[in-house]
Write a protein that binds this DNA or RNA. Sequence first.
DNA 1: ATTGAATATTACAGATATGGCACAACAGCC
DNA 2: GGCTGTTGTGCCATATCTGTAATATTCAAT
Lengths: 220, 220
Amino acid sequence: MKKIMIIEDETTLRDELFLLLQNAGYEPIRVTDYNNVSEQMKAANVDLILLDINLPNINGEILLQDFRKQSDTPVIMLTSRTNEIDEVLSMSYGADDYITKPYNPTILLLRISAVLKRSAKVGATQKYHDVEVSTVKGSLIRNGSEQILTKNEMIILQLMLDRQGEIVTRDELMTALWDNDEFVNDNALSVNISRLRGKLAELGLSEAIETRKKQGYVLK
Amino acid sequence: MKKIMIIEDETTLRDELFLLLQNAGYEPIRVTDYNNVSEQMKAANVDLILLDINLPNINGEILLQDFRKQSDTPVIMLTSRTNEIDEVLSMSYGADDYITKPYNPTILLLRISAVLKRSAKVGATQKYHDVEVSTVKGSLIRNGSEQILTKNEMIILQLMLDRQGEIVTRDELMTALWDNDEFVNDNALSVNISRLRGKLAELGLSEAIETRKKQGYVLK
DNA sequence: ATTGAATATTACAGATATGGCACAACAGCC
DNA sequence: GGCTGTTGTGCCATATCTGTAATATTCAAT
C-alpha cells in the first residue's frame, strides 16, 4: 500500500485529503508539527509527498529545493489559485506536479496515480524504509549521506532486496555474481558481503544483513 | 518563432486557441481537415501539437501512440472535463502534458512554455545550474568563459545531461557516438571523455564527470 | 564449556578498466 | 597546397576493483 505524506496546515483541508486518500486505498500520513517539516520529510519513508506551498513561516519552494538534494521521492505541490506563477516555479524547483486549490478530488487522485506510475517506471530508485536504493545512480542514500556501490555490491544488494526478509543462500548469490566457469574462491563472497556491510554500516545500517549459518543471509 | 499545431474540431475553441497563441507570440496552425490528421501531424514541422482527445471518428490516444513511433515532437492533450480518466491514459501513450477544458488561458500558456522549454533541448540553449549549453553553437558557457565543444564532445555531454546523476554505460556512449559497423578502438571513448573533461575543467568543473569502473560514468 | 566448521576481516596483490599523451590520418577551408 | 582543427590509434601510466590467502571470529552441536 502506497504511503502518502500530507503537509498542509489548514486543518479542514488536511483532514479532507486524509479521508480522500484513505478511501482511495492509500495510506495517508498527516504532518502536524510544522517546526521540523524538513526533517520529517527526509526521515519519512513514503512514496509521495503532498506539500502545501504556503506553510506558516516556511517557504515551500526552498523546502522542496533542499529536500531534492537528498531524495527523489515524488512531490506534488499544493498551490493556491491566486498566484499561479508558483506552479511553474515549483516545477523548476523539482516538484513532480502541482495542484491548485480548491482541489477537484478526481483530478487529484488521477494526478497522484500518474506521478506514482511515472516514478515507479523510473523504478530504478526504490525506497525501502528510509533508504533509497538507486540502481541507475549505483548508490545508496540515507539521510543525506550517500554511499557509492560497486558492481558486485549492487548485484548482492539487488538480489537481497528482491527477497527482503527471506533467506538468500550463498549459492544463489554466487551464481548471481559469477559465471559457472569462473573459478572463484569460496571466500570471495564473504569478502564482498563484508564490503557491502561496511558501506551499509556507514549509513547506520550495521545490522541490515544477518547471517544464518549453513543457510545463507537475510536482509532486514 | 515557435509553431504550434492545433487539432481541435470545435470551431469556437479552435479559434479561441488560435488567437490566444498568436497574442502570446507563437505561430499557431489550425488543422481543418480531420480525415488525414495522422499524416498532417507527421508531415508538419512544428514545435508542439495541441491535440484534442475527442475528434470525429478518431481516437486521439491511438493517434498519439502511432505518432510517437515516428516523432518526438511534444504533444499536449486537450481533454474534456467529463471523462477525466483520459488524462492518465494519455500520459502513458506518450503525451507530454494534458489540459482539461475549459482552459484557463494563463495555465495553458504556462504549460506550453514549460513543455517547450523541456523539449528545447534539441537545438537551443539549455541551462543547467550555472552552465549554459548551446547545442547549435556547440559551446559551453559558465560565468563568462566559453568553451567550444566538438561534435563528439557534444554528443557525450548531451547524453549525460539527459541522465544527470545516473550511470551512463560506455556502451551507451559508444553507440551514441559511432555506428555499429564502424570499428573503433575501445580507447577512443576514453580519449573523448578525457577531452571533454579537459574543457569542463577549464570552466572549473573538473570533477563533473565521475567514472564508475566497470559500470560507466556519472555526470554531477 | 569445548570444539570445529562456517563465516568475517584484513592486508595484499594482480588484473584490468580507464586515463593521458603524442602522433598520424583526415577533413574542411582559405 | 598548406593550414587548422578534429578524431582515432598505440603505448604506457595509474587507479580501482576484486579475488586470494592468512587470520580472526562466530556459532551450533557436542
